[in-house]
Amino acid sequence: MSHKPYSISQDLWMVPCLVHRSTNDYEPLYKPFRNEINAEKLQIRQTWLSFEDDALKVIVIENGARNWISIAKDLNEKVHKGLPIRQGKQCRERWYNHLCPTLHKGKWSTTEDLTILKKQKEIGNRWSEIASLLEGRTENQVKNRFKSLMRKAKNLRNNDKDPIELLIQQLREGAKEKSENFVVPSVINAMMPFFPYPGMNSTGFNSLGEGMHQNFSNSQKDEPSSSLFYHT
């Protein structure tokens, strides 16, 4: 028989059957996915493809980042011919962890690390709450970053202090040292003599404030008095 299973909806299939008139029973001749897709494989996470990402972006932009079951159904209808390839949870994770425009994937700052460590000591592994304090960071990112920080903390293990406290102290000292050792880039100092402020000199920014103030004061003196303006 050439007939194949036909999908009516996500969970409803029409298949050819053999009718047993004596018992009034129907015996399916085919099972969904028998000749096309193995149902068990649908439960295995598959790598997201670029056309799926593109379709998901359009759907979320049009409908908003909510009702992920409906979003998954719409995605499956558009790119998978109605087959339940993607679930709502998968779409949600893909959006927030990879596609969301506000997602920040750059280097972690000292301020972010300190926030993660201090809040974890305060409220425990409530990653969603901690992530809400860091703009552009996801729950999964925060959890992975904490694990990375804990590996560093183990190298600072001390019998007298908590490793997290030691790492917090180290991060604070490092941030303080960077701020104290900050120097104006040499290329900027080299350009200072070319600026038209009287207070400028070859040392760079030393007299910048005074020079600008003096220049501004002179400009005020050169302005004609308002009494010189009159209408005829």
Score class of each variant (00 low, 15 high):
G64I: 03
T111I: 14
P84F: 05
T110M: 11
L156S: 08
R126F: 14
D74N: 10
A175Q: 14
S148M: 12
L134R: 06
H98P: 00
Q170D: 11
K154H: 06
N67Y: 08
L49Y: 02
K78A: 09
I61S: 10
E180T: 05
I168T: 09
I123L: 07
A55P: 00
W48R: 05
E62K: 14
F182A: 11
S109W: 07
V79Q: 08
E93C: 02
S70R: 06
T102D: 15
S128M: 12
I85D: 02
Q46I: 07
N144W: 08
Q169N: 11
W48N: 01
N76R: 04
Q120W: 11
K89S: 14
C91N: 01
I85K: 13
A153Y: 01
P163K: 11
G174W: 02
E77S: 05
D162I: 08
L56V: 09
P101I: 08
R145S: 02
D160P: 00
T111K: 15
I164G: 04
L134N: 08
I164P: 00
K107E: 15
D160Y: 09
K57R: 15
R151P: 00
I59F: 12
L83Q: 01
N158Q: 11
Q90Y: 03
L99H: 03
T102P: 00
E139F: 03
I61T: 12
W48E: 06
C91A: 07
E135I: 10
N144A: 12
E62H: 06
R92W: 09
L171V: 03
T115Q: 12
Q46Y: 04
G174D: 14
